[in-house]
Structures are given as C-alpha cells and as structure tokens.
Nucleic acid binder design. Structure first.
Lengths: 222, 222, 222, 222
DNA sequence: CATGAATGAGCTTTCATTCAT
DNA sequence: AATGAATGAAAGCTCATTCAT
C-alpha cells in the first residue's frame, strides 16, 4: 500500500504546542476536521498568505482560541492538508507503474490524467500554498521533494526501461521525468487556478500525448 | 520592434505615492537603481514575502525614508522588476520566431534554451515572487498572462504551421504550447530555485529535444 | 425624550475596524471604558493632536493592541467622547425650554449657567478637540452643527415668542441665538482652558444677565 | 500709534535657524512674501495642521529647501502671519476708542463690525490655526492673550465709564468685555468658516445691537 | 473543551528637517 | 540664493499567538 508507506514517512497526528501528545475524543476530532475543511475552503478563496486565523475559525464556526487547541500555528494546518494531498499523490504515482507502450498505454495515460486533474482541482489551494512556501521552510520543502521524486522516479524508470530506437534526440531520463511532472503541475496551475480557457478533453489528450511521446518515444542517453 | 511594443503596453516610469510624476535627476536615478538591485538580491536571499523594506534599504545603503521616495510600497519594487523581466521575456519570445524544423532548428533551440536559462537564473527571485503573487492581484496577473500569451502564441503558431505527419497522437496546439512553456518555467524552478542536481548540458539537450518533438513532431487536430 | 432622540440620531456602539459589529462582554466593556477615561484625561493634559495612542494605552494600563480592539483609530475615541458630550448638551438644551421672562427667569438662567459651566469644565478637552477638528471632517462637523442648531433653535424660538417692546435695536433672532451660544462657549474656553482669572460668581451673573437681556430685552425684526 | 506699539511687543523679523540675523535682499524679500501668501492660501484650503511644508512650497513655486531659508520651521510661518493679523487687530481695537453712547454710537459700531468682519474673513485661516494651537505653545498663547486683553480693555473701560442706570442686572465689566469679544470671534467662526447661512446685514445689525446694549445698556457692579 | 480578551513584535508609512551640491 | 535628495523619528495599525476564565 502506497498509502501506508506514505504515512510512515510523513509527519503524523496532531501534537500540542507544548509537545505533549494530544488525544482527541470524538467531538474533538470533529472540530479538528471542521477546521481543516474550513482552512481548505478559505485558502482557495483568499490564498494561504492572505488567510487570517480568524477567517478559518469564522468559517469553521469555532472560537479563535479553539484553533490553537488543534494546531500549534497556522503553518501546521497547511502542513496537515499538504500531507493529505501528498498521500493522494503517492497513490497517483503508484498508478503510473503499469503503463504500457502502445495504444493501450495511451489510453491508460488519458485516464490517469483525468485522475490527476480531478485531484489537482480538489486540492489546488493546498498545492499552491505549499509550493509557494518559501524554499527555506524545511517542512514543506522536504514534502515537495519527496512527492516530486516519487513521480519522477516512476517515470524515469519507465523511460530507461524502454528500448530506444535511436531516431530521436536522446534525452536525460531524470531531466525528462522531472520536466514532464513540472509540465503537468504547472499547466494545471495556469489552467485551473489562473484560469486559461481550454476544453478538458483537449487537455487530457494533449497531456497524454506529450507524456506518451516523452516516455516511450525518446531514446535516452543514460 | 518587439521591445518597443512591450514598453508601450507595460507600465512605465516611477510615480510617486501621491500620484504625481516624479522626475529623477542623475543622483536620484542612481539611488533608485541601487534600491532595485538591492531588492533583487534580497528577494533571492529571503524570498519576497519574507523581505522587509528595511532589508532592502540596508542592503542598498540608504535610509528607510529614501525607499518611499522612489516606490510607494514593497509591491511596487517587485512590479518594476517584474516589468523589466517581462521585457526580457518578450525579447526571448521574439527570438523563437525563426526556429526551423530539422537539425538546424534543434541547435537553434538549444542555444535559445541557454538564453532562457541564463535569464531565469538572473531573474528567478522576481519570477518566483511575481508568479506566486496571489492571482487576485490584477497588476501581476495581467503581466503574467501577457508574457504567457506571447510565448504560447509563437509556439502554437509554429505547431499549426507544421505539416502534420499523422503518425502521432494529435494534440491541441494551444494546450501544447502552454504546456511547453509551463514545463520549461517550472523545470527551471525545481532545478534552479529548489535545487535539483542536474547537469546544465543535460537540461539544455533534454529541453530542446522535448520542445523540438513537441513543436515539429506532433500532428495537431485544430 | 430629547436624550433618546439624540441617541437615535447620533452614531452608537463600538464597531470593529473590519466593519463587523462587536459585542462586548462585561470585561470588554470595562476595558473600553478604561480607554475612554484614559483618553479624556490625556487629551486634557497634552491636547488631542499631541496625544499618541500609546499615551492612552499607557494611562489605561492596557496593551497597544487592545486599543485597536475597541476603536479603529484615535479619531474614533474622540468621536465616542464627543457623542457622549453632545448628548449631555442636548439635555442641557432641553433644560432651556421653560425659561421665563422676569426675575424668576434670571435665576433659572443662573442655575442653568452653572450646569453648563460644570459640563464644559468636565468635558473641555473633548470640546476643544472636537471644535478644532478640521471643518472638512464630516463626522465632527455634523455633530457640531447639530448641537449648535439645537441650542440656537431653543433660544431663537423664545426670542421670537417674546413681545418686542420696540425700544431697542431690533435683532435677527437666528443670529442672536447663535451669537449667545458662541459667546458662552468661547468665553468658557478663554476662561477655563486658556485660563483667564475671573470669579465664578461674576461669570455666572454676567452671562445670565447678557443672555436674559439678549433673549427677553430685545425687539426682533423677523 | 497702536501699530508701532504692537511691533514693539511682538516678535519681529525673520531669524535663521542658527540664530543669526538674516538680511534679505530684494529677491529674498519677494520669495519670503510668496511663501507667506502661499501659506495663507493653503492654510485656508487644508487647515494648518493638515498643511505640509511641501504644499506651501508647491503653491509658492519654490523648492522645498527654500522654505527653510526663510523660516526655521512650520510654526514660524504661522507665527509671522499671526503677528500680521494681530497688528490689524490692534488697529481695530484702537478704533473702538471713540464709540459713543447713543444712536451715533450704534452706527459707529455697525461700521466697526463691517471692518472686523472683513478682517476676519481675510485672515480666518490664520486666526483659526492660531487659536487652536495648543495652549501650551507659549508663542501663540501670549499673542492671543495680548490681543484679547487689548480688545477687552477698551470695552471694559467704556462699560465702566458709563453711568449705570440701575435698571438691569449688573454685570462684571471685565467678564462682559471678554464675553462680547468671544461672541464676535466665535460667531464669525461659525458663520464664515463653518458656514452658517446668515445675511451680512443681519449679522452686522445684530452684533452691533448686542454690543451696544452690552456696553451702554448695562449697569455694572465693579 | 471552549471562549474571546489581551498581548506585543513588527510592519508600512509620513513628513519635518538637514545637508551636499 | 536655491535646489531636491536624504534622513530618521515617530506614528498608525495588524495579526499570530497566549492566557485567564
């Protein structure tokens, strides 16, 4: 299970500011969840840096103070959401495993793109915030690297496993893999967050085509 | 002249907080430039949101007050730098014009990638800040859209002008063009800002290969 | 009830900077009051323009931030105090209603003057600040006009209701009424704020005499 | 000569910040005057506290720095204007000297009121600023006291010189004199600065009537 | 568990005044 | 005599976080 693996690597459970483990009753769990949902919603509306703790608690219908019962600071909510999102991405990366070479693979890629896009749409506020957290912030930096590495690892592995036909300009598999992920992530950002007007079908087809070509159509030199 | 055109569309010259045009003497121009340089440097070191106006003035060796003589707030410095950067990018986009199909075109692309990367490296703090300005900020949003549109326009035009050979999965030229730009921009970010360890040659070769393939190797359906 | 009417016309209750109504608990109400008292005290000592928000909080024994929990800026404290004061003045104006013609009226006026002076003394820092708020400030301007109109209205009404004996130079009742108020207000300022050395009895007697004469002793031509 | 007397009592000529006497050439004198005129104009438009040194120099068409060549700070311009105004008022006070008892005196008063009002209108921004300078400021405080004393002195002297007929409530001549001045000054403020809508004739008649009555119609007890 | 009042560090900004040219 | 760039003290204000109830 990718998910379990992820859980192990990533930071878990709520911890109090004072470092003491916090055990949540049922009600507490519900309040915590309300705060997370509210945060996600507000992050989408106003962006993470623009969001005030008050916006979150107002949306969640809790008191201001309650927030600090569940999270030791604002970044921790984002982290919790980012971890959730990262786990989904791990799953997605795993689904990339069995992609095949020919027409069937192309169809697999299309359906995978659908999944990715759904996921991005659902979690864009978190991704955006997380990605634009300053690189200095070790917490988010590590998370980002891990997810990227996971994706890129799967892809570059497949590229390398592919018999190169020598007809094309050879690529570096590592670079190409990261480039494909970068392309997909950033395209979704332009399209879904900044709002460029493309038809979903065109996007799915084109992404799948470029990926397919990038993965199976290239020779590689490493 | 693309550059002139760009200059015309984009916002020019320094304006005072009170909206009155400020005419700068030689000394003033020098101080203003010192502040811009300092800002760029500090944005790189601490990131834009983390940068305090005082960090900039300290770096520039001016007083706090001098800053507000030339800019009405922190965002305005970023804007000035972003406009500079956008103009460079317009120039770069223009250089994309004469790219050819075959091996010669591939070499052209490689050298173009070198330019792009140099430029990105030089201006990354600005690009990062600008790109992560919240989409709500009309000022930066418009600038971003314009640059993206310029790049994507050139590329999609070339894609459409290319005889499709029907062998590959057809792509939507508009989507593909934005995707290629997204890829390049984001890859540079991962590589140069977040720090992935790739060799520059590999990057240039691989980017050029994927672009070449993306532009000339695909059939398109629109 | 004049007072109720006043309350209705004038701006009520504390409002937060973000425009949202703030409901104050008992503790909050106490803190707010402490701030108002402190402000009045400091306004007297250093004058309104010379007062810093920090002076107020220091006097009130609260933090700087607490101030902005209850008022959105310095002017708003003054406004709150001015409204309080205006309400007192409305009450005073109402007391002017039953003043009679003869000797009894003179005594009534004397006792009324006592009230006015007490009131002025108590609230002088507020009145001074309020009156010297620049006329452009609609907030204070309106309040001032309302109070003046109320006073002048009562007085001019009585002047007009008085049988003129034709012996004296006729006056315009509106002008005379405003003039009497102006006289009283400004005299109190010279005397109580700038510090002229008059005996309280002399002041009360003289003011009452001039008012009595001004109200009942003049013929009017309108 | 009242004017000479005034000149002697009041603070004279421009002095440099460093305390050295400044001798102005013809051009300098002209610039200084331009600054004074500009200041008066701007004080009227924006009020003294709201006026920035830049507003004055902009209006005068000089450089920012030039201001400090002629005045050592902002208050000094106001002071210079206030002294000018005070001198006019001294002259006015002197004109009060020969006022007579009967109908002729009433006409004299009316024409005097015209003068006063013209003067107030011309100098209102200065008077307002000066009067609302914080009482702590010795400079303006003294000037104000002197002018008030001069006016009140003339009036109370006449009141005391008048045979009291015993019919009216006796007044304290000192209080009454200050009260009449206060009335006039403050009425003009309400009327000319805050803008109450009275006809000039009504004002002149009514003011003259109240003063006439106040001066000649009262018995006094001191 | 929950509340919301209180805190205070830290930011942006203004503008009277000084100073080098 | 004039210029206008530079200074820096001091203000107003925000908001993440803490704390008493």
């Amino acid at each position: 299970m990718a998910k379990t693996a992820a859980k192990r690597q990533l930071k878990p459970a709520p911890v109090r500011a004072d470092g003491q483990q916090r055990v949540l009753g049922e009600q507490g769990e519900r309040t915590r969840q309300r705060l997370l949902d509210a945060a996600k919603k507000v992050f989408r509306e106003r962006s993470y840096p623009e969001t005030r703790v008050d916006d979150i608690t107002r949306e969640a219908g809790t008191s201001h103070g309650a927030f600090y019962l569940y999270f030791s600071n604002k970044a921790e909510v984002l982290e919790a959401l980012a971890i959730e999102t990262a786990e989904r991405m791990y799953t997605l990366a795993d689904e990339l495993e069995g992609i095949e070479r020919g027409e069937a693979g192309f169809d697999q890629l299309k359906s995978w793109m659908e999944h990715f896009i759904d996921n991005y749409e659902e979690n864009s506020p978190v991704v955006v915030a997380w990605m634009s957290a300053r690189p200095q912030d070790a917490r988010f930096d590590r998370l980002g690297r891990e997810v990227l590495a996971k994706f890129a690892g799967r892809i570059s592995h497949t590229i390398r496993a592919t018999e190169s036909d020598g007809e094309r300009h050879p690529v570096n598999a590592g670079v190409a893999a990261v480039a494909l992920v970068a392309m997909l992530e950033r395209f979704c950002y332009y399209w879904l967050v900044r709002g460029g007007g493309f038809a979903r079908d065109d996007v799915v087809d084109t992404m799948a085509a470029i990926w397919h070509q990038g993965i199976f159509g290239a020779s590689h030199k490493d």
